[in-house]
Design a binder for these strands. Structure first.
Length: 466
DNA sequence: TGGGGTTAT
DNA sequence: ATAACCC
């Protein structure tokens, strides 16, 4: 049973109100807790080899065979059977076939099935809790603080009985149920297990979860036990986790460029970054970046879980060996537009900006150097996005070709290796003159019994606050 | 090395 | 518009 509340003096801070009863023991090991841990409980969910899992659902007969997902000349991911045979993520098709001749490859250049399943996962998590943030197609952060808080209250009322951690505890650290944060994180591990079970039961997908007091730590800890397992990080093991990273680029938020700049300063690992003089770092990287990444190096991350909501942009791209004539460009652009218009139609919102991106061949500087031009979509075209309108294609192609000529002098030879079209600045459909949300939600398309606007209706609660 | 995404400047 | 970051 829990200790009784201790009727001691009110402390100077108004920070802790109802939980003086669970303070760490004065004699207890006061190892370094996560800085600014607060009392949040964050779960990070990371689906196992996501594209390969989706393909195994689409083709059940391939489930027990070594399976890879191919885009162009690359095996972008593969199932665990293939990994047992030595196939790695982002291996070239040639290497993969040599490593594992029985490897079965499916083409994954069209992301539609993955995108759809990805949003199903995010929406499912959204049923548990409103604070769900997507990271790519296969990861989600969930701020489960409120769920944990509710269960903690219930637990206190109903008596203690047995509180059990779900899954692994990082570093096998012993639990101290006198510590309120330990209790919260244990409850968090139970919630995370329920999230994973729901994703598996409803969508047939497995994945890993990490539970910790912030996003950085939750993400780092989720990978400790790898397929289909979960791990909770207790604050005292924070330094072990973060210092265990062998290179600074493994810290989420420190990418390729920043890692190179840090290396030039002699900063190679997380300990180096922790110990590096702040003033020097600030002069080198700017105050904001310097302070942020140095906090990250201590496992300190106060960034909130920001609900992603519907996508802010829709893009479609294709890469190729060579595209060197205007006619070819036009053909590729038309292809990209067809699938994009379909996606935008299903979303229900209207884009107000269009962008064309290209990559020009260069022997050095292999795949950097993309350029783009964007412009507003002419107002008279915008209403046409609501309908199944193929006559949008030609004005949009014309617009995109204008953007193309702003980047490329078509009278000179050129060599493109990528084209990409992006629609952004998405706005909800204007509300009808009748004006009410009810009217809006009841709009049906002629044939089906479904609302005209999928996501617009789905996310229409947002309109109430406008 | 693919085909996506986001935010900051 | 680009550059950085994420998957």
């Amino acid at each position: 049973p829990p200790q009784q509340p201790q009727e001691e003096e009110k402390e100077m801070e108004e920070e802790e109100e109802e939980e003086d009863w669970l303070r760490p023991q004065p004699g207890g090991a006061a190892a370094s807790p996560a800085p600014s841990a607060g009392r949040r409980v964050i779960a990070h969910l990371d689906l196992d080899c996501f594209y390969a899992q989706v393909e195994m659902i689409r083709h059940p007969q391939l489930r027990d065979k070594p399976l890879g997902v191919q885009q162009k000349n690359i095996v972008v991911t593969c199932n665990y059977e293939a990994r047992r045979h030595g196939v790695k993520k982002l291996m070239s098709v040639k290497d993969a076939k040599e490593t594992c001749p029985q490897l079965i490859l499916v083409n994954g250049e069209d992301l539609t099935p993955y995108r759809e399943m990805s949003y199903k996962v995010t929406e499912l998590l959204g049923e548990f809790c409103p604070l769900v943030e997507r990271l790519g197609f296969d990861e989600n952060f969930v701020d489960i603080t409120e769920i944990v808080e509710k269960r903690l209250t219930q637990l206190l009322q109903s008596g203690w009985s047995n509180l059990c951690v779900a899954g692994h505890v990082y570093n096998d650290q012993a639990l101290n149920l006198q510590d309120t944060m330990h209790v919260r994180l244990v409850i968090g591990s139970q919630v995370a297990e329920e999230l994973r079970e729901a994703v598996h039961a409803r969508l047939g997908l497995t994945g890993c979860a990490g539970v910790a007091s912030n996003k950085l730590l939750a993400k780092l800890v989720s990978g400790t036990f790898k397929p289909n397992q979960q791990t909770v990080l207790l604050p005292e093991s924070c330094q072990e986790l973060i210092r265990g990273l062998d290179h600074i680029q493994k810290v989420p938020g420190i990418g390729y460029k920043t890692a190179k700049r840090l290396e030039m300063l002699g900063v190679r690992n997380v300990c180096d970054l922790q110990a590096f003089p702040s003033a020097v770092l600030e002069k080198e990287l700017g105050v904001s970046m310097a302070q942020r990444i140095q906090k990250l190096s201590y496992g300190d991350d106060d960034s909130p879980v920001t609900p992603s909501g519907p996508p802010q942009s829709f893009s479609d791209e294709d890469s190729f060996k060579k595209c060197s004539s205007e006619v070819e460009v036009k053909e590729k652009i038309e292809e990209l537009l067809h699938s994009l218009l379909d996606r935008i139609y299903k979303d229900g919102r209207q884009p107000h900006t269009i962008r064309l991106t290209i990559r020009q061949f260069s022997s050095t500087d292999k795949w950097f150097h993309r350029e783009s031009r964007q412009c507003p979509i002419p107002p008279h075209l915008i209403p046409k996005f609501g309908k199944e309108n193929s006559n949008l294609i030609s004005p949009l192609v014309a617009l995109l070709m204008k953007l193309f000529r702003k980047m490329i002098d078509v009278d000179l030879p050129f060599h493109l290796t990528l084209l990409s079209v992006c629609f952004s600045n998405l706005k909800d459909l204007p509300t009808s003159k009748k004006g009410s949300i009810g009217f809006y939600l009841k709009q049906m398309s002629p044939g089906s019994g479904k609302p005209v606007c999928g996501n617009a209706a789905k996310y229409s609660l947002k309109m109430l606050s406008v």
